[in-house]
Amino acid sequence: MKTWLKIVLILIGIGMISGGIVAYKIFTKPHRDVTAEKAVTLTAQGLYDAFRTNEANANQLYLDKAIELSGEVLEVSANQDGKTVVNFKTNDPLFVINCTFKTNPGELKTGSNITFKGICTGYIPDANVVINEGVLIK
C-alpha cells in the first residue's frame, strides 16, 4: 500500500473515532442530579431579599447553584407537564419563590413549612425567583 494512502486512511480513522467520541459524549452525558450536590441553605425570604436588593450579586451567588430552600407554602399547583409546583411565600404579596419538583413530593399543604432542594435558574422582577428540578427534603 502506498504511504500517502496509509496516512489518509489513518486520518479518516482518527476522524471517525473522535467524531464517535463527541457524539457519544453528547448523547450519554447525564443530567445534573441535585440530590448528589452540596447546596446553599437559605430561607425563601432570604433568597428574595438577595435578588431584590442586588440582582447581579445574587446571580453570582445563586444562579445555576443547588439551593436548599425553607419556607411557608403559599400555593400548590401542577404545570402543563403534570409536575408539582410550589410557590413559597415572601413578605411581598405579589412575589414568590416558584419551585418545580422533578419527583412527586406527595401531598403538600398550604400554610405548612417545607424544605425543597433544586437548581436556581434566576430572577424575574415583579414576579418570582425560579428553582426547578427539585426534590422534597422535609
Binding site: P30, G122, I124, V130
Partner: peptide, 10 residues
Amino acid sequence: LIKGFKFGYA
C-alpha cells in the same frame, strides 16, 4: 429564564 430550558441531552 434561559437556564430554565430543559433539553433531552445534557
